[in-house]
Amino acid sequence: MSENVPLISNQDVYMNIALIKQYHENMPRRKAQQLALTYLERFGLGAIAGRRNPALNTEERFCVMLLRAAMVKDAMILIDQPFQIVPHLQDGRFIMDALKIIDDLYSSCHIYDYRWMEKKYGEL
C-alpha cells in the first residue's frame, strides 16, 4: 500500500475492501461486504463504511487501505512510506497498532521508508 495506490473514488469504503474478495474469490456481494464491515469494526470505523475516499481523514484512509491490502489471499503487505499517507503522525505507533489489530489477516508485512525517517519509527 502506498499513497500512489489510492482508494477507488467512485466506490464506498466497504466496496473498496470487499472488491478484492469479490473479484479474486468470486465471494457473493453480501458476504464480502459483511466481511468488510466486520473488519472495519475492529478499528471502530463501522460508521465510515458508506463514505467515499475524499470524505475520509488520513487515519481512516490508512486503515481502509490497510484492510484492502489485507484482503488479498495470503497477503504479504508492503507499506511504502506510511508517513506520506498519514503525514501528521509524530511516530509509528498508530501504524503498528493498526497492523496489530489485523495481524491475523496477513502473513507478513514490510515497511519501506527513507533512512532519514528512521527516528520516527524509534525502537520498532
Binding site: N4, V5, P6, I8, S9, N10, L19, I20, Y23, H24
Partner: peptide
C-alpha cells in the same frame, strides 16, 4: 469522464496492482 479521472487519479493503476483485470471489471 469517469475513465479519464480514474486514469489521472492512478485508480486504474491501483486496480492493476491488485491484479484486477480492467476489461473484466
Amino acid at each position: 469522464t469517469e475513465m479519464a479521472v480514474m486514469k489521472v487519479n492512478r485508480e486504474i493503476r491501483t486496480l492493476e496492482i491488485f491484479r484486477i483485470d480492467i476489461i473484466d471489471y
